[in-house]
Amino acid sequence: MAFPDSLILSADGTGSHPRFALLRRLLRRPSALCGLVLMAAILAMAVLAHPLYPDDPLDMVAAPFLHPGTDAAFPLGSDMLGRDLAAGIFHGARISLLIGVVAALVSLVIGIGIGALSGYYGGRIDAGLMRLTELFQTIPPFLFSLAIVAILQPSIATITGAIGITAWPGLARLVRAEVLKLRHSELVEASISLGASDARIILLHILPNVLAPIVVSASILVASAILSESSLAFLGLGDPNVVSWGGMVGAGREVIRTDWYVATIPGIAILAAVLALNLLGDGLNDALNRKGQRR
Results as ranks from 00 to 15, higher is better:
R28V: 07
R290Q: 15
G82C: 00
S107E: 04
T258W: 12
P141T: 10
A103R: 01
V262D: 00
S155I: 02
H17T: 13
P54K: 04
V216N: 05
P30M: 10
I163T: 03
G238A: 11
A167Y: 12
Q153G: 13
R290G: 14
L194T: 13
S193Q: 14
R28Q: 14
L152P: 06
I139H: 01
D59P: 00
M45T: 07
L227G: 10
V47F: 12
A104M: 06
V249R: 00
G281R: 02
I220S: 08
G236M: 11
L117D: 00
A162L: 06
P266R: 07
V274I: 14
I201G: 03
L26F: 14
G283L: 11
N278D: 12
S244D: 05
G250I: 04
T133W: 03
L108E: 08
P154Y: 08
S230M: 06
T133E: 06
A199V: 15
G250N: 04
F144C: 05
V37G: 06
L288N: 05
T133C: 10
I151P: 02
S6T: 14
I114Y: 01
L38D: 08
Y121D: 02
L129C: 09
R176L: 09
R183L: 12
A87H: 01
P266M: 09
I206H: 02
G283A: 09
I148S: 09
H50E: 15
D56E: 09
S197V: 12
F142T: 05
R253I: 15
R124M: 13
F142H: 04
P18M: 10
F136E: 04
A196F: 12
L237N: 03
C34D: 01
H67G: 04
R200F: 13
A73S: 12
